[in-house]
Each structure stands twice: as C-alpha cells, then as structure tokens.
C-alpha cells in the first residue's frame, strides 16, 4: 500500500507539471489560432490537428524511443533521454493541443461588443486581448480546464509502458511480487477515483471564487 501511495504522488506531480506546461502552450497556441496572420494560424492548426488526431501512447513512444533513435542515426551517438523528461514532455505537448482548443473556444465565446468597445477606445489588439478578452475568457475556461486536468491525470497511466513509476506501474510491480491482481488493481482504481474527485471539488471552489464580478450587490 505505501508503494501505491508513492506511485500516486508521482502521478500527481507529473500531471501537475504536464498540465501547467500544457496550459502555457495552450494559451499561446489558442491565441495564435485566432491570429490575423495566415502562417501563424496555419501552424497552430497543424499542431492541434496532429496531436489530437494521434494516440497519446504513440506520442509517448516517439518521444522516448523514436527521437533518440533518430538522433542516433544522424549523429551516430547514443543519446538516451530521461524517462521522466520524455514522459512529461509527451504529456505536456499532448495537453497543449487540447487546452489550445479550450482557450480558442473561450475567447470566441466573449461577446464581440467587448473587443469593439476596447478597440474603439484606441486599445491595440494585444491590449484588448490581455486586459479585456483573456480575463473574461479564462473565467469561462476553468470548468473545461478541470476536465482536461482530470483526463490527463488518468492518461498518465500510459507512462507505465515506458517505465515511469507512477501509480499504475507501481501497482504492476507490486503484483509481479504478490500475484494479487484483483485487490491491487482495485486499489489503483480507487486511488485514481479519489484523486479525480478531489480535483473536481477544487475546480468548483475556484469557479465560485472567480464569480465575484457576476454578483449583483
């Protein structure tokens, strides 16, 4: 059991880093997706389509095994990549694509009158985005962002395949010794459930705190 707890902690911090980086990527790509520049818009579109259209498991394998192999072919030198770095990178890049679409939808959900009012005051596109659109959009994307966090937390179980000792992998190692498949897998399941339910609660709290300006008092 303490073994599983260690795994759960690993799962949590891997998810936290992956989603945090994913949110940063998503903010940039989500705004870029609505750029007036065709090239920027096109590139962000390609990134989103490619990542969302391919399995995370294969993305993980490409980064952990595929890229070092490619580098070996080019440089003739072995360049192994740390399994945690590879795993988190894959998850962050994956998460970024989903967050980008969440950000784009959030920006587009803000009434056009808001940007018209800001622009009519002489504010630039960038100022309008930063002071008017994004603060309002961020408030609306908290719930879908919570979903993304939960989805990523579960998806990190795929990292067990490359040997990252997160919750699922720790469980498998434990089963290899004890052969107690059912109780261990059930325990893993319940721990994932406990984590995702906690995140849901945190998101609800965050939503309430951000709703201040919607109150009429």
């Amino acid at each position: 059991m303490p073994l599983l707890l260690v795994g759960a902690v690993t799962t949590i911090w891997i998810t936290a880093i992956a989603v945090s980086v994913g949110v940063l990527i998503g903010l940039v790509v989500g705004v870029a997706r609505l750029s007036e520049n065709v090239l920027i818009r096109g590139l962000s579109r390609i990134y989103i389509d490619c990542i969302r259209g391919t399995p995370l498991l294969v993305q993980i394998l490409i980064i952990y095994l595929g890229i070092p192999n490619l580098l070996f072919v080019i440089t003739k030198q072995q360049m192994p990549i740390n399994v945690y770095v590879a795993g988190i990178t894959a998850c962050a890049i994956n998460s970024g694509a989903y967050v980008a679409e969440i950000v784009r939808a959030g920006i587009q959900s803000i009434d056009r009158g808001q940007s018209e009012a800001a622009r009519s005051l002489g504010m630039t596109r960038a100022q309008t985005m930063r002071y008017i659109i994004l603060p309002q959009a961020l408030k609306r994307i908290i719930p879908p962002l919570g979903n993304e966090f939960i989805a990523m937390l579960k998806d990190t179980s795929l990292l067990s395949v490359i040997g990252v000792e997160e919750l699922t992998r720790k469980g498998q190692l434990y089963i290899a010794v004890t052969f107690a498949s059912f109780p261990v897998y059930l325990g893993i399941l319940l721990m994932y459930l406990a984590m995702t339910l906690s995140i849901s609660r945190l998101i609800t709290l965050a939503e309430r705190r951000l709703a201040v300006s919607d109150r009429s008092d």
Partner: peptide
C-alpha cells in the same frame, strides 16, 4: 484615430470584469 473618436454602443459594452472606475481609467 480611435483614441480621438469616442463611441457609445447600443448594448453599452462595459467590461463586466472591471468596476465602473476601472472601466473608465483603463484606456
């Protein structure tokens, strides 16, 4: 140009996440 031309809209378009004062001082 826009800084010199004020505009008032049918639906006000105040910034809902900012107080009245912040709405006015921002630009």
């Amino acid at each position: 140009l826009r800084a010199e031309v004020g505009m008032v809209f049918q639906h006000f378009n105040l910034f809902p996440h900012k107080t009245v004062l912040e709405n006015i001082v921002l630009a």
